[in-house]
Design a protein around this nucleic acid. Structure first.
Lengths: 268, 268
DNA sequence: GTCAATGGTTTGTCCGGACAACCGAACCAT
DNA sequence: ATGGTTCGGTTGTCCGGACAAACCATTGAC
């Protein structure tokens, strides 16, 4: 799964030898009667071991062959488990050396999560105030983003997101009219993405633009900011796994109280 | 590689049947004498075919077994090729149905790229003015980010990034002192990441924070913006594959001329 | 002492096969 | 018409094996 990259080992200082902690033997087991795939059982146990510090950063995982033998699995299965953790950025493989645990810092790799989930995970009790929930004719901008006819019917939702009773963001979203029904109580209880997923929509990818500008008087008022306060802006179009645009949103955030915080992995 | 996710198929409108274009037969071939892995040759050909529109969005790829037979490859190899494109978001697999091309819109999934490369790819001829390139004692903030001793030696680089002769961003970066040598001509000719990669450093992941605030008089002056203009801010710590922090940067961008634009994939 | 050759270890790639799980369509019975 | 069943097709999972490529440490030659 690694791209065949040519490694320039140029005119630089010698790469410091990464300290390798000793190989760790770990309590692992799989349940063959479970419907959960074996590779998945294994990868979860390994991930948990890393999470709990039983596998310390830098430690070697022990070679795949022996690990497979110890668990009564085949090497491809073990490799599949390891590979999934490599993709998550938790492990690094080196041919001729072994597989070692990355020196953490890794938290989570920028998921397509709603602001609601983010706030909830951060322990802020989020709240939503639905300001508008209706169908409107699609403007040119919205029609282009959702790939529907200009002037066609689309849902429009306007929400104010609060944390600890304080306004955090003003969210304006558009959805294809025939996608699903939403009412205010649902929207106040959880995030939009969770509702869409619960409706059987498989979210696949999204295109985002993050920028900044100063608040208009209206916006400043709604968010409780002084006039001309700096705002973070985000526009996002989300696609399901058939490639259909299922949501377009324009959000503004109080820069004084919110910032985007995420982790990137380098796809070698 | 798919997570065993329970599919809620709830109280929603019936999911519109995705239009499936007819299965496409494609001109594919692999070169067994090449050192390039077979699965990689195949995935590149498929990706190119998608890029060039020979595989149209929604079209089925034809079953793996037959595809493998047609190419003289084994099914695992074909699966590996397909999987890499699924991971890139170009293909979607459905058990019992087949593999189909995602209705594009997919461009690139937020890589760890330098601003320099981004501008260059966008056709803006970027330029860099090195304002500072020296070693300093690490402040508490920098020491924490790079995991070095406070007061220890670190490189400090300050650069002004221009596009079409106009200032775009002001970049301040810190690197461990023993990592590599950089001189101004190198820094003006290309981006920092490219230099690090060329020095044999394997970039692995990065932690980013994007926010906004108003410019100080100094900053406004440097960037050619009016006082109190909104700025986009980014802080980033980059790690190599041993988990070592190899770069910490604090960047500010003119919000009037720059925004972050990227694509996210949902990790099933 | 320094450099090149050697060998052992580990992951990377590839093969061929087997069965299970799932989807959709066609079919049949109600 | 409606609903359930069956069946063919496709991907998902798993196995066991084989060889190649890369890395590291040791050995040997100069």
């Amino acid at each position: 799964m690694q791209l065949p990259v040519i490694r320039h080992r140029g005119y630089a200082r010698p790469v410091p030898k990464p300290e390798v902690a000793p190989t760790v033997t770990l309590q692992l087991s799989v349940d063959r009667s479970s419907p959960v795939p074996l590779y998945f059982q294994l990868s979860q146990q390994l991930e948990a071991a890393i999470e709990h510090g039983e596998l310390t950063p830098g430690s070697l995982l022990g070679n795949e062959i022996e690990l497979a033998a110890r668990l009564g699995l085949s090497r491809p299965t073990v490799r599949q488990a390891i590979q999934s953790l490599v993709d998550k950025g938790l492990l690094v493989r080196r041919r001729g050396v072994g597989t070692q645990v990355v020196h953490s810092q890794v938290k989570r790799p920028l998921e397509l999560s709603s602001l609601y989930d983010d706030l909830e995970a951060a322990g802020q009790r989020p709240a939503t105030r639905v300001l508008l929930n209706t169908t409107v004719a699609a403007s040119a901008e919205v029609a282009a983003a959702l790939a529907v006819a200009e002037g066609g019917e689309v849902h429009r939702i306007e929400r104010l997101r609060l944390a600890h009773g304080e306004p955090m963001a003003y969210l304006c979203n558009y959805l294809p009219a025939d996608l699903l029904d939403l009412d205010a109580p649902q929207l106040e209880a959880t995030g939009l993405y969770r509702l869409m997923r619960a409706a059987g929509i498989t979210l696949h990818s999204a295109r985002q633009t993050i920028g900044a500008r100063t608040a208009t008087p209206d916006e400043a008022d709604r968010l409780g900011e002084p006039e001309n306060a700096p705002l973070l802006t985000m526009q996002r179009t989300t696609f399901d796994d058939t490639g259909r645009a299922v949501e377009y949103g324009t959000h503004i955030y109080r820069a004084s109280r919110y910032s985007f915080d995420f982790q990137l992995l380098v796809r070698s």
